[in-house]
Simulated scan of single mutants.
Amino acid sequence: MAIAVDKLSDPAVRALVAAINAGDREAFRQTLAPGATMSDDGSDRDLDDWTEREIFSSRGHMDVRSESSAGRALIADYRNDTWGEMRTAWRFTVDGGKITRFETGQA
């Protein structure tokens, strides 16, 4: 059973997941601190290139299955038009209400 996005504990993470699921690039960018970074399966990636390819141009969507670490760690079923659906883990670093880093990969 998925956790409703509006029930996610951390406000910044909640806003990021909502932006991904809405396909809203601008709302997504608003969740990030300047200079935010990310990694995928343990390798640092260019955040703008990765999010365009893996989220926005491929219609990415997250169904959150569980959260921990005060809402800054998620297990989600993630799907997009490129890879289909897979179980993923997401960890977020939040400072001042903005996401400074996120790490994702297969769970």
Rank of each mutant, 00 (worst) to 15 (best):
F56Q: 01
R14C: 03
G23K: 04
N21T: 05
E103R: 09
D63Q: 11
R29S: 11
R29Q: 12
R45Y: 01
D41N: 12
A76V: 05
T88P: 01
Y78F: 13
R29H: 11
K98L: 15
E85S: 15
G97A: 11
E103S: 12
D46I: 06
S68Q: 15
I75R: 15
T93S: 13
L16P: 03
R72Q: 13
P34L: 08
G42R: 04
A18Q: 13
I55V: 14
S68F: 14
H61A: 04
E67Q: 15
D41A: 09
F28Q: 08
E52W: 07
A2C: 02
F28P: 00
R29M: 13
H61G: 02
E103Q: 11
I55M: 11
Q30H: 13
T31F: 01
D63T: 05
I55G: 08
V94R: 07
A4F: 03
G60Y: 07
F56C: 02
D41I: 05
F92E: 09
D46Y: 04
S43H: 06
A76W: 05
Q106D: 12
A4R: 13
S9M: 06
D95F: 08
G84T: 00
N21M: 00
I99M: 07
S43V: 05
W50M: 03
G84F: 02
R25F: 08
Q106F: 14
D41W: 05
S57G: 05
A70W: 07
D49H: 15
K7V: 14
G42H: 03
G97D: 10
I20Y: 02
D40T: 05
A33K: 02
T82M: 14
W50K: 01
A19E: 07
N21H: 05
G71L: 06
G96Y: 05
A22P: 07
V13H: 00
R91L: 14
G42W: 00
R14H: 06
F92S: 03
D95K: 14
A76H: 01
E85V: 15
V5M: 02
G23D: 05
F102G: 06
P11T: 00
